[in-house]
Simulated assay, not measured.
Amino acid sequence: MKKGKLLKSFQYAFLGIAFCLRSERNMQIHAAATVVVLLMGTYVRVTKMEWLVLLLTIGGVWSLEMVNTALEKTVDLITAERHPFAKIAKDAAAGAVLVFSCIAVAIGLVIFIPYLW
């Protein structure tokens, strides 16, 4: 891969992240939660292993939210009319984000409660 193409691919990726942060309410919520977690982790001085778990969890939530957005936009592009399969695709993708977000909250509680207790 040529250097220019590689740089262009990074540019497109950053544009995708920026789009999600600007236009998706749930992504903005995840970003705010990320700031809170990073500040709390710094404040209570979580261990290196806890940082790794927190960062992987944050990355997972952000990634799933962006995949959800991509899927929703693709479905909207394919059909403007309501279709049961389109609804299932959108609902399943949103459900995946919800499941991982609930796990992320549980992970956060397991890590932070002992420090705050």
Rank of each mutant, 00 (worst) to 15 (best):
L39V: 14
A33T: 11
L56S: 10
A86T: 00
V35A: 15
M1L: 08
L55A: 06
W51G: 01
Q28R: 12
F100G: 06
V37C: 05
V105P: 05
C102W: 07
Y12K: 15
C20G: 09
V61Q: 05
F10L: 15
E81P: 00
A31Q: 05
F10K: 13
M1V: 04
I107A: 13
E72G: 01
I78V: 15
I29K: 14
M1G: 13
Y43W: 11
I78D: 02
Y115R: 10
L98S: 14
M40Y: 05
L15T: 07
A94H: 01
V53Q: 07
G16K: 11
F14H: 09
M27P: 00
K90R: 10
K8Y: 13
L15H: 07
D76F: 12
A13Y: 11
A92N: 00
L54N: 01
Y43P: 00
K3H: 12
A96T: 03
M40V: 03
L52F: 08
Q11T: 12
V97G: 03
A70R: 05
V46C: 03
L52D: 07
E65C: 08
V105C: 14
T47I: 00
S101A: 14
K73S: 11
W62V: 12
L7R: 11
Q28K: 13
S9T: 10
M66D: 04
T34K: 07
R22G: 13
E81A: 07
R82Q: 10
W62E: 10
C102M: 14
M49K: 13
L15Y: 11
V67Y: 12
P114G: 14
V36A: 11
A94S: 00
L38M: 11
W117F: 12
K48N: 00
P84I: 04
A31M: 14
